[in-house]
């Protein structure tokens, strides 16, 4: 059964789109991620124009992060104040990111930059996560205690000025690295169509030493607003948000996520992190091959509004 996407201006198989949404929803529920880094490449792979895939991906992440953030809010694992500080940087970053996005599109290098960013970020984050989780899995096998956070151990981040107290996270931390982190993620959100959770979560844990239990909720909280902002700006500057496509992905994603959460609850933390690491690394390597291997067709045609 086909459905016509009014903004992407092409017909797609509705079951392929629902299947993608459900599969990504399942993984995002299982690993506590937004899933933008999976959905955007999948859409591009399915011939959705990259501009539409990026903007629609951001829209879809709004839905999945609202779902997730609400669950964390009920459990009290969301630091609103920290989230708001992150958001200040995030919105600024998203504004800059949209300008970069439009510029790259004009230059005809958007797909290259998107792929490069994916390869670099997914590859490095996935690699680091895999390394870390293999070490913890081995420790767990030797019955040693596993601790993500080493209290009392400070790094250069904690010597910066403009400190602020974050009660829920039990932290006294400079706002500079928080805003900078938000800013960087904001740029990635608008250029790559991702929430950026897969970068933000490790950065918050390892760099800012924020307790693991509030990290996911807080990052989801700020992702809601940065992706919402990105969606609106993409809609007004590039007219590239396809509401029909986004909604199909959301519906399937929200349902898939519920099953993912159940599976995730049965797994141990280190196993989950190793699984996510393999997933992230796998997508990164897959995209990396595409950049390096000779393409079947070296020419590409741009016509109409969304071609590249």
């Amino acid at each position: 059964m086909t459905i016509y996407l009014p903004i992407a201006e092409l017909s797609v198989n509705i079951f392929v789109i629902l299947g993608m949404g459900a599969a990504v929803g399942f993984l995002s529920g299982m690993f506590g991620i937004g899933g933008g880094f999976l959905i955007t490449p999948l859409l591009i792979f399915y011939n959705i124009p990259p501009a539409v895939a990026v903007a629609t991906g951001a829209n879809q992440v709004v839905a999945s992060s609202v779902s997730g953030a609400l669950a964390h809010f009920r459990r009290g694992t969301l630091d609103m104040k920290l989230g708001l500080v992150l958001l200040v940087g995030g919105l600024a970053g998203a504004t800059v990111g949209i300008q970069i996005f439009s510029m790259l599109r004009r230059l005809g290098q958007l797909d290259l930059i998107i792929s490069l960013l994916y390869v670099v970020f997914l590859g490095s984050v996935g690699g680091l996560m895999l390394w870390e989780s293999v070490i913890s899995l081995r420790r767990a096998a030797n019955n040693k205690s596993v601790s993500m956070r080493k209290p009392g151990q400070h790094n250069w981040v904690h010597r910066l000025p403009f400190k602020m107290r974050f009660k829920r996270s039990k932290l006294y931390l400079s706002v500079i690295p928080v805003i900078l982190l938000g800013f960087g993620i904001g740029i990635l959100t608008s250029v790559m169509g991702v929430g950026g959770g897969f970068i933000m979560v490790p950065a918050m844990i390892y760099l800012l030493r924020i307790p693991t239990n509030v990290v996911i909720g807080t990052s989801l909280f700020q992702i809601i607003f940065v992706t919402a902002f990105t969606t609106v700006v993409q809609a007004t500057t590039n007219f590239s948000v396809d509401i029909v496509l986004a909604w199909l992905l959301m519906i399937a994603g929200v349902i898939g996520a519920q099953y993912g959460v159940r599976v995730g609850q049965k797994m141990r933390g280190e196993q989950l992190r190793a699984g996510l690491a393999i997933l992230v690394l796998g997508v990164g390597i897959r995209l990396g091959f595409e950049l390096v291997l000779p393409p079947d067709e070296v020419y590409s045609v741009v016509s109409g509004s969304f071609g590249f």
């Binding site: 919402a228 969606t231 609106v232 809609a235 948000v241 909604w247 959301m250 929200v254």
Partner: peptide, 29 residues
Amino acid sequence: FIYNFAHANSLAYGLVAVLLAMLTGWLGS
């Protein structure tokens, strides 16, 4: 209708897209 809306009232369209996403996420949870 969607195409015209997205081009003629792009701000409102973007906001509707966001609200729809929030609503879907909220209903899901």
